[in-house]
Nucleic acid binder design. Structure first.
Length: 151
DNA sequence: GCCAACGTTGGC
DNA sequence: GCCAACGTTGGC
């Protein structure tokens, strides 16, 4: 299943969220979630490059600091109206839950494998909330997350 | 165009 | 609570 998904020609991303505001549970519960509130140009520009069917790691900030699941882009970037800004200033995408990881993959764990995750923006640019993920990195995180916790 | 001051995010 | 890393703003 995961293999077939990765064989398709799509791009991979990571979306950060405060679990208090919108957790992976919330995305599952809502069905379709509007990914709004991005107020950083770099992050916005990455969102605008997303294609329907692309997959995104969902990362919880705050106390958890871990990748918890995968979401799929169900609608490409469209306008997010924000008071005080001209129309078209900001964008949102729609996402749906795709697959919850069996085990959350923590930031600490990724850092401890820094040679396997060279160039991963999550480790380099801690403040960026939307970022591309190299297919190899994406695959590795899914693999780490599919493992059950050891005995 | 430069830079100081300030604000925000997010990890520690 | 602190701080590093950015981003933004405004004075010059």
């Amino acid at each position: 299943m995961v293999i077939a998904v990765l064989a398709m020609n799509r791009s991979y991303w990571l979306l950060k969220t405060e679990p208090d505001e919108c957790s992976y549970d919330d995305i599952e519960r809502k069905g379709v979630d509007h990914w709004t509130g991005v107020r950083n140009f770099q992050a916005r520009n990455f969102m605008r490059k997303m294609k329907k069917g692309d997959l995104a790691l969902v990362y919880h900030t705050g106390d958890q600091k871990a990748v918890v699941g995968v979401a799929e882009i169900s609608k490409e970037a469209y306008d997010e109206p924000v008071r005080g800004f001209p129309a078209g200033s900001w964008s949102q995408v729609d996402v749906v839950a795709n697959e919850r990881l069996s085990r959350a993959v923590s930031l600490a764990e990724l850092k401890s494998r820094s040679d396997e995750f060279k160039g991963f923006l999550l480790l380099k640019q801690s403040r960026l909330s939307v970022m591309p993920v190299e297919p190899e990195h994406f695959k590795k995180i899914l693999k780490l997350g599919s493992k059950k916790p050891g005995p």
